[in-house]
Nucleic acid binder design. Structure first.
Lengths: 134, 134
DNA sequence: TTGCTCCTCACGTCACGTGAGGTGGC
DNA sequence: TTGCTCCTCACGTCACGTGAGGTGGC
């Protein structure tokens, strides 16, 4: 039973709660914030509040630094690249879905040709659900 | 005028030539090789030979470590991600080009619809050359 | 008051880069 | 021979993580 001040409000976790959950020093969390890797919001009393999204970011950071030995400069770059890759995937996804839509409205050799290209060119995880399973 | 052994054969640059070109210690190049970041081929006498491709890889590495402060673990991951992003871009490119081809064979509202989607969804650098400039 | 929060400063450790030292082939 | 190559071992420096010390608000 936790005593004292609540460590978890609806607005997020306080620093010691996060530190305990991930077995990490509170100062390290402050370091990550100073480096711009993980910037939680603050309460009106200036206390850090970590949201669920912050915790996911933290897990990524810990994976990179603890398991893979990446330093903070590298982590920043990798997080940015991840973001860009996600965007690219989303664009690809949207585009593929549109062409699939076109596909459904056609028939005959043209349909086969489109479908062929889709399978050749689009990553499997984008086409599997709608096209190849049929 | 360089004396002694040739530092540049048609097969590639020897380590001291590369070291001089990039103002880097030969031991550092050996370190990068040991870490798997930059693995040149070898002559039959076991001498390292750096190709043009190796030098490009080296420039990327130096940019990451010198200018951005990324450590070697991070560089390895970033190089891999770059590779994957290039692949994604190639796939995207091929797909967009195919749809553009389809586009040219159509007319009327259907063409407009396809073109619209292309512009909305494909990154500008993929469409500029063939579609938007017309 | 207690137990948290905030902050700054400082130390220990480890990775990276560099140098020395000794070898061998063109 | 000279000047390169190969290798291993070792040191200096710096970033990162952790701890101490002192403050303030719920």
């Amino acid at each position: 039973m936790p005593r004292g001040r609540k460590t978890r409000g609806k607005a997020g976790y306080m620093i010691s709660a996060v530190a305990e959950m991930y077995n990490i020093h509170p100062q390290t969390l402050r370091l990550y914030e100073r480096e711009g890797l993980l910037v939680p919001s603050r309460s009106h009393g200036n206390t850090r509040l970590y949201t669920q999204k912050d915790l996911e970011q933290l897990e990524t950071i810990l994976n990179l630094t603890r398991d893979l030995g990446v330093n903070l400069a590298g982590i920043e770059i990798i997080l940015n690249m991840r973001e860009r890759m996600k965007q690219m995937e989303d664009e690809m996804q949207a585009f593929v879905e549109f062409v699939q839509q076109e596909l459904l409205e056609r028939s005959g050799p043209e349909r086969d040709r489109l479908q062929n290209t889709l399978m050749r060119v689009a990553p499997p995880y984008l086409t599997r659900s709608r096209v190849s399973n049929k």
